[in-house]
Amino acid sequence: MYVAGVDVGSTATKAIILDENQRIVGRGLTHTGANVIKAAERAFAQARADAKSDDYEIGFIVGTGYGRYKVPFGNTQITEIGCHGKGAHYLFPETRTILDIGGQDTKAIKISAQGEVSDFCMNDKCAAGTGRFLEASASVIGLTLDEIGDVSMRSSHPLRITNMCTVFVESEILSHLARGKKVEDVLRGVNNAIAGRSVALMRRVGLDDEITFTGGVSRNKGMVTAIEERLERRVNVSPDSQFIGAIGAALFAWERTQKKVGAS
């Protein structure tokens, strides 16, 4: 019996299908857009197609992310904080601290050796230091989110970006560019600003052990480097880092089916 996790984020919706041995057999990824229910259905259909699982029964589905109650086919909902903890623990069992930077949230999560959440901190009511902040910065320069990581890596003299407001940062970037500053130095400055804020958030939950970086922003190599430089140590980043919430949700779904099997 297969299980699934669907993570409806503010920017992207992710779906994961696991087989009975907790192996990832299907992935789905789509823009969330305005219709959250459609996005959940789309990501799930993609994951099913990827898993070629039309013949299999999906035994249990867990919805997570800010749109978790908009997964009409989900059996239950679990917060993305719990799911990121579970997913990161699955991929990197020694992880104790997780940094998740998504479209509108930045979270620092502390987990136990068993992958249970013991503490968490989040940014509040402001997009400073989130994916949206990066997106705003990228769009001023005329680049896409996927391009800015590589560009920022070419920087030799990173600038200091002082505005943490997503709206005001655009004018700060424009004024740097008007003064002839290089695009890569501006972007590296943006990454460094977010890294500083993120590390401060992680310090609030504790920074003693292995760290895993998750969420859409972890695909940006420039951000990973900026955070590693700030922390002076390496952080785990999985090729599936954007899917970690969905993986965690699917693992919770798998646990539910085990309980069912045990009970019957």
């Binding site: 904080i81 719990g82 249970e116 959440v117 989040m122």
Partner: peptide, 12 residues
């Protein structure tokens, strides 16, 4: 936002 934090806390 409140619901997310409260749910995550009591869930854990």
């Amino acid at each position: 936002q409140l619901k997310n934090r409260i749910d995550a806390f009591f869930e854990s």
